[in-house]
């Protein structure tokens, strides 16, 4: 391999970002991922295990890890923490019954050492539903303002219409790249 090829490869590796998507079941993690990738979202079934998707966006290579949110899968979440650059926490804004569950699960993630360096993006999903709570209500319910350990941002969105998905991902990328790729 020529020197140029090696350099190129290193450069590519540098622009790789690992993003972990978590949240309670039925939050819409897989739907967000598929919509962002321009795939059909009508046929999605509950995730039994996990999905990995690699996307090119703004010159970055994004490795998305979408892990199922069913209760029985949550104990496996920890297996995916290593070297995560960005954490996307997806919330079903219409599911007020489980908002407290949602807060607790998120809080237990944020004390995880292996996620200590990760940027947190909260997607208040399903804003297209008439019963959805606003992103400010979600922000209060999840007590996001108490988070001092991570850079965070909350974004209202709809995985069905695709509204604000790009906005959220772009913020996430900006924050990650300002931390990691300062050399450029």
């Amino acid at each position: 391999m020529g020197l140029l090829a090696i350099l190129k490869k290193m450069k590519q590796k540098e622009r790789e970002v690992r993003i972990l998507m978590l949240g309670l079941d039925n939050a819409g993690k897989t739907t967000i991922l598929k919509k962002f990738n321009g795939e059909d979202v009508d046929t999605i079934s509950p995730t039994l295990g996990f999905n990995i998707k690699t996307l090119e966006h703004r010159g970055f290579k994004l490795n998305f890890w979408d892990v199922g949110g069913q209760k029985s899968l949550r104990s496996y979440w920890r297996n995916y923490f290593e070297s995560t650059d960005g954490l996307i926490w997806v919330v079903d804004s219409a599911d007020r019954l489980r908002l407290q569950d949602c807060r607790q699960e998120l809080a237990s993630l944020l004390v995880e050492e292996r996620l200590a360096g990760a940027t947190l993006l909260v997607f208040a999903n399903k804003q297209d539903l008439p019963g959805a709570l606003t992103k400010d209500t979600i922000r209060e319910a999840l007590e996001l303002d108490n988070i001092k350990t991570h850079h965070w941002c909350i974004q209202g969105c709809s995985a069905i219409t695709g509204e604000n998905l790009l906005l959220g991902i772009d913020w996430l990328l900006d924050d990650i790249s300002s931390r990691i790729f300062t050399a450029d």
Partner: peptide
């Protein structure tokens, strides 16, 4: 802490 109070469910 007491769970944050939620607004009453809307008509939806």
């Amino acid at each position: 802490r007491a769970p944050a109070a939620l607004p009453p469910p809307p008509a939806a």
